[in-house]
Design a protein around this nucleic acid. Structure first.
Lengths: 139, 139
DNA sequence: ATAAAATCTATAGCTACTAGAGGTTCAAGA
DNA sequence: TCTTGAACCTCTAGTAGCTATAGATTTTAT
């Protein structure tokens, strides 16, 4: 029931202390009250909000996205579609990233395999990087 | 044969002018000579080095990686394995990123699907984000 | 009462650029 | 040759999302 310090909030959430202060500074986490000695004291509501932020971050949402999602969740009905839009937009971005990374992975593995199969002193990593033409059609 | 301006180098490579100056500033691209009026004039060697940088960046190497790769390519033999190491390390990092992104993608799609199949006003995007327990086992 | 641990603010640093201000130089046409 | 406009110059500050440091204060435990 007792309110808790920033260190406790950090332990409960796994979020580093300076990061908590940073989220407050950029307006994501509401300012808690202070002790007479000016230290922050948090309540359950702060815990929930911080968890929301952290979970959204894990899912790759930007702080701006999160800001928007939070105002949506506070305001009246009819905003679900907006939250939906933000999430779908984000999903598309992630799919694109995956596609690109898989292509990179392929190119890198090819480069490394060529290296392995050559003679000991013919590793081509640097040569391949120097020469665009050696890329196997991924760009 | 003629040496060329920064704008020309930019056109030849697709790299923006301020970015070229930035690469010079951080020591990746050697300083070219200057005209009497203090403008940069590049030669073919700069073009090749910049292409090396850009290609490595496309493959997701950091500027520090690239710096290391470039010193390796300059120095004596026996360094191929180091270049190899950098590349394999990088490949592993990419594979990890892909795994994580695929998990994210799954979680996001699930979230969005739950939203679609519910009644019109029961979109759960915000609720799911608020509650860690609703994640389907991806963390 | 004291000492250690935790907290406070403020500032600077990180990556890899990008944008802007305010001034100079170059190249081409008249 | 002169002029004009595009391209160039340097320098500073801003972006995202923190992290690290310094130096001072407060809280907690003994």
């Amino acid at each position: 029931m007792a309110d808790f310090s920033i260190g406790m909030l950090s332990k409960k959430t796994g979020c580093k202390v300076p990061t908590i202060r940073y989220y407050e500074q950029v307006g994501l986490l509401p300012e808690p009250y202070r002790t007479e000695g000016n230290q922050r004291r948090y309540q359950t509501k702060h815990l929930h909000i911080l968890q929301f932020i952290l979970h959204s971050r894990e899912l790759g949402f930007t702080l701006d996205d999160i800001r928007e999602l939070m105002t949506l969740s506070k305001s009246d009905e009819g905003n679900e579609h907006k939250a939906d839009d933000i999430a779908s937009r984000h999903l598309k971005a992630i799919e694109l990233k995956i596609t690109r990374l898989v292509a990179l992975k392929t190119e890198l593995s090819t480069m490394l395999k060529e290296c392995e199969h050559g003679q000991a002193d013919s590793c081509r990593v640097i040569d391949v990087l120097s020469d665009h033409m050696l890329c196997k059609g991924t760009h």
